[in-house]
């Protein structure tokens, strides 16, 4: 097991390296030079020169890349062109918002999707199954921003309820924080619940047809044991794979939801960076989000091996 973990961790190094090179290379493709973009027309040639040296932009590309990566490894993502503040602490503050949103969103989607998916499979072709299939199809077809607007509009017009403005961190005031976070997390959860529901349903249906389920029933097992101990445990492997892949959709969805609900998360920071042409911020945020995504995928892979005894660690 230990060797397997180490091997999987080593395997992500080239991907991380590739991701960072890609981000760096793409940033270099930006037309015009970054400094004039940031300064606009006001900057004097001297100021421009000073900033170019400060950001190391006078050095050859590979040196710039190595300096950037070495900094990143020490938690130094450079300074914002706008505020001149270091990027990393700001990023960490905002990451806590994004992390809370994604985790709550994921939990909500699992709580909704997995039980409904199981019910649909055990009541195949009955009313509940049809409902689940329609719900799932709607879920995968409604973009998160559209659902957010519908929900906000509905609450405002019908209940005259407006989502509280302004963000409060969980550690400051947990109740207020959850009040703020519940609606965005719910929307985020619903938009990914559809595909988990489908996967749970089809995976359960497949497992329920397998021979060993008949053996379990022939032993005199109750339906509860047959479904939850045996069928679900086996059906979980593809569900976990999907859940891992969906972390990407969650992080991407968070970018949009943060914008709509004015939550100061990483996605909002990235978008603001793009709008203000604050390239070090964009570069740092994109790298960080990709890193989180890769990390979560690694964790699901390891979990997968932990759950399925057939995966050998050698």
């Amino acid at each position: 097991m230990r060797n397997y973990v180490i091997r999987r961790i080593l395997q992500i190094i080239p991907v991380l390296l590739g991701v960072s090179i890609l981000i760096f290379a793409v940033m270099k493709l930006i037309p015009g030079d970054v400094i004039s973009g940031a300064l606009g027309v006001e900057g004097s040639p001297e100021l421009r020169q000073a900033l170019t040296v400060k950001y190391g932009l006078d050095k050859p590309y590979h040196v710039q890349y190595i300096n950037w990566i070495l900094g990143v490894l020490h938690g130094d993502f450079g300074d914002s062109l706008r505020t001149s503040e270091p990027i990393f602490p700001e990023m960490m503050r905002r990451f806590s918002v994004t992390a809370e949103l994604t985790i709550l969103g994921a939990l909500i989607s699992w709580i909704i999707a997995i039980p409904l998916g199981i019910l649909a499979a055990t009541h195949r072709n009955k009313g509940i199954d049809r409902f689940v299939r329609v719900f799932a199809l709607m879920g995968v077809s409604i973009p998160s921003f559209a659902l957010s607007i519908l929900v906000i509009l509905f609450l405002a017009l019908v209940f005259s309820y407006f989502s509280p403005l302004g963000y409060v961190s969980f550690f400051e005031n947990p109740v207020k924080n959850l009040q703020i976070m519940i609606l965005p997390s719910f929307v985020l959860g619903i938009t990914i619940a559809g595909s988990i529901m489908r996967m749970t349903r089809s995976s359960m249906l497949e497992v329920l047809q397998q021979d060993f389920i008949k053996t379990v029933r022939a032993k005199g097992a109750s339906e509860r044991i047959t479904i939850f101990k045996h069928a679900l445990r086996n059906a979980f492997i593809p569900i976990i794979t999907l859940i891992g892949m969906q972390i990407g959709s969650l992080l991407g969805g968070a970018v949009i939801i943060e914008q709509i609900f004015s939550l100061p998360g990483l996605g909002q920071m990235t978008l603001t960076g793009i709008n203000q042409r604050d390239y070090p911020v964009v570069q740092g945020c994109v790298l960080f989000i990709a890193f989180i995504y890769i990390l979560v995928n690694l964790i699901t892979d390891l979990l997968y091996a932990y759950i399925d005894p057939r995966i050998s660690y050698n």
Partner: peptide
Amino acid sequence: ILFAFPSILLAI
């Protein structure tokens, strides 16, 4: 490497 980005983030 392309897959290592959430797709909407990469597009953005």
